[in-house]
C-alpha cells in the first residue's frame, strides 16, 4: 500500500516537472532558452514516470518489462540530440538571439570562415 503511494507520488512529481517545462516553453523569451527547458526538464519528468512504471510492473505485476527499459534508454539518448538539432536549425535558419543575450561567439566564426548562409 505504502509502496503504491510512493510510486504514485513519483509519477505525480514527474508530471509536475513536465508541466513546469511546458510552462517554461511558454514563458521564456527565445527559442534557445525554450530549448533548454524542453530538453532538460521534460526529459527528467519522463524518466521519472517511466522508471516508476517499471518499478510498478516489477513489484506488483511480477513483470520485468524490457520494453520500458528500452524506452528509458531511448528517451535518455535522444533528448539531448533533439535539443541540439533544434538549436542548430534555429541558428542556421537565422533566428536572432534574445535582446538580453550578452555574447555571441558563433557569429564571428560564421561570418569569417563560412560566409553568410
Amino acid at each position: 500500500m505504502i509502496g503504491e503511494m510512493a510510486i504514485g507520488a513519483v509519477v505525480l512529481l514527474g508530471a509536475c516537472i513536465g508541466a513546469i517545462s511546458a510552462f517554461g516553453l511558454i514563458r521564456l523569451p527565445d527559442i534557445y532558452l525554450r530549448s533548454h527547458a524542453a530538453t532538460k526538464s521534460a526529459t527528467v519528468g519522463v524518466l521519472l514516470i517511466l522508471a516508476a512504471a517499471f518499478l510498478y510492473f516489477l513489484l506488483y505485476l511480477d513483470h520485468v518489462s524490457v520494453k520500458l527499459l528500452l524506452g528509458i534508454v531511448f528517451v535518455f539518448l535522444t533528448a539531448p540530440v533533439a535539443g541540439h538539432l533544434t538549436g542548430r536549425a534555429a541558428y542556421r535558419s537565422g533566428v536572432s538571439l534574445w535582446k538580453g543575450s550578452v555574447r555571441d561567439d558563433l557569429k564571428q566564426e560564421d561570418s569569417s570562415a563560412q560566409g553568410p548562409l
Binding site: I20, D30, Y32, A37, S41, G100, S101, D105, K107
Partner: peptide, 25 residues
C-alpha cells in the same frame, strides 16, 4: 541530468527572469 533540470526549473519559476544568455566557444 538531475542537477541541470533542477537549475532550469529554478530559472523558469523565478518571478523575474534573471538570465543572461549567450554563446561561447
Amino acid at each position: 541530468l538531475f542537477i541541470s533540470s533542477y537549475a532550469v526549473i529554478l530559472h523558469i519559476i523565478r518571478p523575474r527572469l534573471a538570465v543572461r544568455p549567450g554563446i561561447f566557444a
